[in-house]
C-alpha cells in the first residue's frame, strides 16, 4: 500500500462561476488578482478557482462577489486546482461533477433574475411560495363517470 501525502493541506479551494453577458472569466481574473493577497487564482472556462488559507479566500470572495453580485456564484471544491486525479487529460473525460455544473449552469440566469428582484423589492414581497409544491389535483370521480358516459355510444 502506497503512502499518501496531501498537497495544499490546510487550504480551501472555491469555484467562482460567472454567468454574465458583460464580463468574461479573463476580465474577472484581472480584477481578482488586484485583491488576491497571496491567494492562488486560476482562470477556467466558466470563471475562476481560488485556493488559499480560509480567511484570505473568504476576503477575496467578498471582493469578487461585489464586482457583479447577481451574476457571480461561488461553491466549495474538495480538490485543489489542477489535481491530476480530477484532470480531464488524465481521466480521458470530464469528471462527473462537471456535468452536474453543466446542469445547474443552465439555470443560473433564473437565479440571477431572482437576486435582482430581491434587491428591488427588498422588504415588501409577498410570502414566497417555493416552486415545486403545486400538486396536480386528481380527477374527480363524478367527472370521470361523466367522461365515460360521454364516450359510450
Amino acid at each position: 500500500m502506497a503512502e499518501y501525502t496531501p498537497g495544499y493541506a490546510g487550504t480551501v479551494t472555491k469555484y467562482v462561476f460567472i454567468e454574465s453577458p458583460s464580463m468574461t472569466p479573463g476580465e474577472l481574473a484581472l480584477r481578482a488578482y488586484e485583491a488576491s493577497e497571496g491567494v492562488l487564482i486560476k482562470e477556467t472556462c466558466f470563471g475562476l478557482q481560488v485556493t488559499g488559507e480560509a480567511d484570505a479566500v473568504d476576503r477575496l470572495i467578498k471582493v469578487i462577489r461585489s464586482i457583479d453580485p447577481d451574476h457571480i456564484f461561488v461553491k466549495d471544491r474538495g480538490f485543489p486546482p489542477g489535481d491530476s486525479r480530477r484532470c480531464r487529460a488524465n481521466l480521458g473525460g470530464a469528471r462527473p461533477g462537471y456535468l452536474g455544473h453543466e446542469r445547474e449552469f443552465r439555470l443560473l440566469r433564473y437565479i440571477s433574475r431572482g437576486l435582482e428582484e430581491l434587491e428591488r423589492g427588498e422588504g415588501e414581497e409577498p410570502e414566497p411560495v417555493p416552486p415545486g409544491h403545486e400538486k396536480r389535483p386528481k380527477l374527480d370521480i363524478k367527472r370521470l363517470q361523466d367522461l365515460i358516459n360521454l364516450e359510450e355510444p
Binding site: L91, G92, G93, E102
Partner: peptide, 26 residues
C-alpha cells in the same frame, strides 16, 4: 483505464434513446 468524455446533452439524449429509465444519475 479512462472515462469516455461526453457532455450533459449526450447523457440526456442517450437515456431517451436507450429507453432504460433509471433513477441514478451515474
Amino acid at each position: 483505464v479512462f472515462f469516455p468524455d461526453i457532455a450533459l446533452a449526450d447523457v440526456e439524449r442517450a437515456v431517451d434513446a436507450f429507453g432504460l429509465d433509471v433513477r441514478s444519475a451515474d
